[in-house]
Amino acid sequence: MNIFEKFLYIDRRWIFILVALAVAVPLVFPLGLAVTTSPPVENVYNEIESLKPGTPVLISVDYDPATQPELGPMTIALLRHCIARKLPVIVTVLVPGGPGLAVDITSKVAEEMGAQRDVDYTLLGYKVGVSAVILSLGQDFRISYPRDYYNTPLDEIPLMKNVKNYNDVGLVVSISGTVIPEYWVAYAHERYGQKVAAGVTAVMAADFYPYLQTGQLVGLVGGLKGAAEYEKLIDRPADGLKGMDAQTIVHLLIVVFIILGNVAYIFMRRAKKRSEASAR
């Protein structure tokens, strides 16, 4: 085993420690690096800005705790934006692990902004059968949601009185770490002409670009960076922006790792070839 090989195959636990430090240090000692916004996120922001006050926005919490650190900040930013613009928010949930997160986020944001449940926002809760639920909302919300999360009949909720189906909703934003936004595209946008935007984990973000090009999605908020951009747009710094320093440093570290690893690999291959040649 030559020196390059030894270098390449060091115990990975050393690398783990480096990564933990690269995240923790910038969190404790922030650098305050500037964040630039990108068109897909700006489009979501502009779409919400363009809605008339009083137009309901449907935010679908389609994620569970596994992706909460990534998607929670953007959900909060979107909620704050809608409530500040006096757009009533209807919150639905299409993954079973999600309703608890929706309860937590809506109640906290409402308290902080003095919003009233069932007037400024409403939490409809979780329903099974993703595509069936999305389709049913295009006919009548009451098909899948006879009652909200808190067991109140829909007709007794002031906010829902004038909401029958997608015709009465200005924008749907599906926030998810799965392909559920694709179902919103296929069943709410294509079938009922509903405008749809998506907030997704970075794992999925690159896969959603075809929908942006066709206009099937009006905009896309991707990962924690997307949340940070949104926080910048609404001028309310929170967890997203706070995390960006650490994000930048770890990305740099990983790029350095890739370069170092490949350089060592090339030298190792050369050294091997040379020793094989000399053996002959």
């Binding site: 990975r12 990564v19 569970d64 705790p65 909460q68 790792f257 170092l260 690893g261 690999y265």
Partner: peptide, 21 residues
Amino acid sequence: QATMFSLLAFYIASAAFRTFR
């Protein structure tokens, strides 16, 4: 549940160094 997948951050970094060729 949230911690489970954050484990991957560590593995991705080590793979960046040792495997992504």
